[in-house]
Design a protein around this nucleic acid. Sequence first.
DNA 1: CAGCAAGCGGAGGAGGGGTTCCGCTTTCCG
DNA 2: CGGAAAGCGGAACCCCTCCTCCGCTTGCTG
Lengths: 221, 221
Amino acid sequence: MPTSPSETAPLRRDAQRNLERILDAARDAFAEDGVEAGVDDIARRAGVGVGTLYRRFPTKEALIDAVVDRRADEIAGLVAEAEAEDDPWEGFVLLLGGLLERHARDRGFKALVADRMAATGRPSLRERLRPQLVRILTRAQDAGALRDDITVEDLTVQVWGAGRAVEITGDIAPDYWRRHLAILLDGLRAPRATPLPGPPLTETEGEALTAAWTAACRSGR
Amino acid sequence: MPTSPSETAPLRRDAQRNLERILDAARDAFAEDGVEAGVDDIARRAGVGVGTLYRRFPTKEALIDAVVDRRADEIAGLVAEAEAEDDPWEGFVLLLGGLLERHARDRGFKALVADRMAATGRPSLRERLRPQLVRILTRAQDAGALRDDITVEDLTVQVWGAGRAVEITGDIAPDYWRRHLAILLDGLRAPRATPLPGPPLTETEGEALTAAWTAACRSGR
DNA sequence: CAGCAAGCGGAGGAGGGGTTCCGCTTTCCG
DNA sequence: CGGAAAGCGGAACCCCTCCTCCGCTTGCTG
């Protein structure tokens, strides 16, 4: 747990500085290339050797976790913003838009979204966010704006898919996500919803999916 | 071009048999593991050595191409079926449903879909299919069933995203794609569609996207 | 049946990741 | 200031995958 400041002996000043540099470099590298960015590249960006990197993070995975942890506030902020929005539908749109926009601009974001709900690893983030998500969803449904036959699992899968689509378009048409989202929203709006076939995913299935998705993200794509 | 039968000397009988075995094994391996299935694994499934495989296909990429070529008829058949359907909307739904169902059941299908439109490599398939696609789309629009502000590019991106989502759910909930599709269709239906923001992708952008998508599929996302 | 070209298999090369190791440097504290 | 412990760098290592090479085998043809 190198990120927790108050544990065992404090880091030497140079070590602390290098730790910051590594985290910053990793954030940038992941944003540009996704989690498949190489450790050598990250170390070079940070101006340190790979040995230094591995002194702080026993494995690349641990580095990813640390970067994700650091950025978790970003998602938490977005969700809070969405919940604070007066209009339930607008709040819902704000959330989805925020997610897709980040997907379009930042390739490392996928790992963040995956981790946000991950069943494995650090549950704090996911457990903190999920209730908020449900609230945003049901609030929009109670207001009659969002179709009431979809569940959080449906929404999650939709976001994964849309995120992937928008991620691909991000390099070529950075604003295309708005169009994509508009189509998705038309499918989610209440007024003209067609009954959905088949049962929704159970929460257990949702968790299994999340685990699979996380694994896929971790291994690069 | 090992797949074209009438070229230079005909293959020896054992070689011909091994060629079939390799193609079958590759099809199965890709369906199970996606294009990231290893060549050693494919050779083992086929009951041949990797040397034999490489005698026929200069590179793994060429093998993928050959498998995709062989399966191209599957997509062509689906598209033809969709076009032959009396009701324009039903034809459209048939097409999307067929694509998503295959995505859910067959991990190698993604490569096929990518290649179907690929700007690089074998253009025949893509060029043959695209006009049909446009016809299916415009027919449904002219019938007033499909919203008339979407383009083939929009549709393609939607299918990529939905395919990804459904691919993940395929292992856990093989029929979930129906639910996902239903939501997507509600977003695509004409009645009371909300105007889309921003311009659609140009055809040039569409081609660039396809190339990027193909590259991503080839390298195993 | 004999000769030989085509075909075969699988050990090993090549290259690209992540990870380790160890001799040198820097910081800190008495 | 001086010594010890923490930190540093990056070459080397491991492992995994695609691909090559070459001595042996098999099927075809006269």
